[in-house]
Design a protein around this nucleic acid. Structure first.
Lengths: 110, 110
DNA sequence: CAGTTAGATAACCAAGTGGTTAGGTAGACA
DNA sequence: TGTCTACCTAACCACTTGGTTATCTAACTG
């Protein structure tokens, strides 16, 4: 996998388990055990997913006795939306209309 | 890799070469040759990237004699922004303020 | 016809992914 | 002390990914 930040973020999001974990963390911090519960997979498997999310900067892990609470850090998602927004004119009708309007103005200006 | 649409889209975007191809196609359709030029990699490698993008529904491929022009189809990107928008309150200050305001109102209501 | 160009396919390789089981560590508690 | 809980690491597996070279088809061009 490519190692630039945006690629790492996209790769981390390319898994429904990891997206579900982020959705859960949007409601507040949780322990690894709590995050594992909804999934029919072993602890180490969840642990690996958490490491991927941590490497992408999407979560941070603290320490509280034998628990390792995970917290959401959504700032990489801002980069994701900013990147995708560069293509908004290809699907958003209002942007598309603005686009043709600007094109029209440019033609008149020449 | 997971085979749900959103995962396929995210996985397709998790590569700088493929994102660069999409950026190029935002300026208009292009042949495989034209798309290959900026990259120091073989034709088959680009061909594979295009297949990934096609599978994700991000491009469509036509036919014109011996050329196979690629066209951008950004609609999967709308799903991406819509998903990420669910987390906007974690990074957007104005949303964060609205959030605390609503929380405040809810408390008063109880 | 032969030759060239655009592009896809096949076979291969090294590295990564997503899962497993087994075993280890750190803290709470009797 | 011993035991339980929470979590991690290590080793392994099947499969995928991103690249290569070699080979093939399809269409234009002389």
């Amino acid at each position: 996998m490519a190692d630039d930040p945006l690629s790492i973020t996209f790769a981390a999001l390319a898994d429904p388990t990891r997206r579900a974990i982020l959705a859960r963390l949007a409601e507040g911090a949780a322990t690894v055990k709590e995050l594992s519960e909804p999934f029919a997979m072993s602890g180490p498997a969840v642990s690996k997913h958490l490491r991927v999310l941590e490497r992408a900067g999407l979560i941070t892990r603290g320490r509280d006795a034998q628990w390792r609470p995970c917290t959401l850090d959504a700032t990489p998602l801002r980069e994701v939306t900013e990147w995708a927004d560069g293509f908004r004119r290809f699907w958003d009708d209002s942007y598309r209309r603005l686009d043709t309007y600007l094109e029209h103005m440019k033609e008149k200006g020449t």
